[in-house]
Simulated assay, not measured.
Amino acid sequence: MKLGVFSVLFQQLPLAQALDYIADKGLDAVELGTGGYPGNHHCNPAELLADAGKLREFKKMFDSRGLAISALSCHGNPLHPQSHIAQSFHDDFVRTLDLANMLEAPVVVGFSGCPGDSDDAKYPNWPVAPWPNEYGELLTWQWENKVIPYWIRTGEYAKRQGAKIALEMHGGFSVHSPATLLKLRSHVGEVIGANLDPSHMWWQGIDPVQAVRLLGKEQALHYFHAKDTCFDTNNVNQHGVTDMQAYTQLLDRAWNFRSVGFGHDLKTWSDIIAALRLVGYDYVISIEHEDGLMSVDEGFTKAVENLKQIMIKEPASEMWWA
């Protein structure tokens, strides 16, 4: 396994300075935001695709520091019911797939998106209960008419570009759990897999170790984000896990994102790393920093220090004792 970082947390820095900082921390890989919600501060696909010279210089910035580009990330909602919004997210994602081909980045990370409740809707609608029955009917309509057709088309394009799509299982989107990921994969094919972020599993009540095993058995684990979640029991009892308070309301929220090791102990994280090894995942552990209690530097540094203690980097030895 290799240790990397999703570089959007350093978007306030010029790319060269951010890469120097990342390399100095001893990391192996960088995941780059290319549009959608994360923006494209360090990597603008339209510019790089239009200028071969810029593209060569861009590659050199990573090669000269011994850093790999582990993934391109374009999180958006290409199924948004307002067509101009959906089109913008879709265009960003397609350009990202094109750039992934040019950079030989094997994975493109994103969201599945979430449609509205009809062709005339203005806003996404995320059904979370099977009853009253119209919610179940809505969910069926969304998948049959929007989710599956879109990703069949986009999956075919990704295959032609030689990239795997790692959908981040995230609340608010049609694919948000191992079951919904595998459902979409059964229709689209192996080009679709998961970006597994334990923080989003925990707040939904899903054990990340079991999520790794479920997805790994299906060879459906394409990428991994390292981010933690902590819970406040009193606030959970008041608001439930679908807490709609702003992330800035740290004291009152049921749960908050934390740096690795500050929501769950390193034994828990060791179990996750072991499960990844067990199912054959031998790619990048990409740190994502969204800890409201720590600065970027401190939160990132502590995540690096904690993960370095538990990462499994070398191939397993022969079982001389068996």
Results as ranks from 00 to 15, higher is better:
residue 133 N to V: 10
residue 135 Y to W: 07
residue 135 Y to H: 12
residue 135 Y to D: 07
residue 137 E to N: 05
residue 138 L to D: 11
residue 139 L to F: 06
residue 139 L to P: 00
residue 140 T to L: 10
residue 141 W to E: 12
residue 141 W to L: 06
residue 141 W to V: 09
residue 142 Q to N: 13
residue 142 Q to P: 14
residue 142 Q to K: 06
residue 143 W to S: 13
residue 144 E to L: 09
residue 144 E to K: 11
residue 144 E to V: 03
residue 146 K to H: 14
residue 148 I to N: 02
residue 148 I to F: 05
residue 148 I to T: 05
residue 150 Y to L: 15
residue 151 W to R: 14
residue 153 R to N: 14
residue 154 T to H: 02
residue 155 G to T: 02
residue 156 E to G: 01
residue 156 E to F: 01
residue 156 E to A: 01
residue 157 Y to A: 11
residue 157 Y to V: 13
residue 159 K to T: 15
residue 161 Q to P: 09
residue 162 G to V: 12
residue 163 A to I: 08
residue 163 A to C: 15
residue 163 A to V: 15
residue 164 K to L: 15
residue 165 I to R: 13
residue 166 A to P: 12
residue 166 A to K: 11
residue 167 L to E: 02
residue 168 E to M: 09
residue 169 M to K: 01
residue 170 H to Q: 07
residue 171 G to D: 13
residue 171 G to A: 09
residue 172 G to K: 08
residue 173 F to Y: 15
residue 173 F to W: 11
residue 173 F to H: 08
residue 173 F to I: 00
residue 174 S to G: 12
residue 175 V to Y: 02
residue 176 H to P: 02
residue 176 H to T: 06
residue 177 S to Q: 06
residue 179 A to L: 08
residue 179 A to C: 05
residue 180 T to L: 03
residue 180 T to G: 12
residue 180 T to E: 11
residue 180 T to S: 15
residue 180 T to N: 10
residue 182 L to V: 06
residue 183 K to P: 06
residue 183 K to Y: 08
residue 184 L to Y: 01
residue 184 L to V: 03
residue 184 L to I: 02
residue 186 S to K: 02
residue 189 G to E: 10
residue 190 E to W: 00
residue 191 V to H: 07
residue 193 G to P: 11
residue 194 A to M: 05
residue 194 A to E: 10
residue 195 N to Y: 04
residue 195 N to Q: 12
residue 195 N to V: 09
residue 196 L to A: 13
residue 197 D to V: 04
residue 197 D to G: 11
residue 198 P to N: 03
residue 200 H to R: 04
residue 201 M to E: 09
residue 201 M to Y: 00
residue 201 M to Q: 14
residue 201 M to R: 07
residue 202 W to E: 13
residue 203 W to M: 11
residue 203 W to V: 05
residue 203 W to Q: 12
residue 204 Q to W: 00
residue 204 Q to N: 08
residue 206 I to D: 06
residue 206 I to Y: 07
residue 207 D to M: 05
residue 207 D to N: 15
residue 208 P to R: 02
residue 209 V to C: 12
residue 209 V to A: 12
residue 210 Q to L: 09
residue 212 V to G: 02
residue 212 V to D: 02
residue 213 R to G: 09
residue 213 R to M: 09
residue 214 L to P: 04
residue 214 L to W: 00
residue 214 L to V: 14
residue 215 L to Y: 01
residue 216 G to C: 12
residue 217 K to P: 04
residue 217 K to E: 13
residue 218 E to H: 04
residue 221 L to F: 01
residue 221 L to Q: 05
residue 221 L to W: 01
residue 223 Y to R: 04
residue 223 Y to W: 08
residue 225 H to E: 01
residue 226 A to F: 00
residue 227 K to C: 10
residue 227 K to D: 06
residue 228 D to W: 03
residue 228 D to I: 00
residue 232 D to L: 04
residue 233 T to M: 10
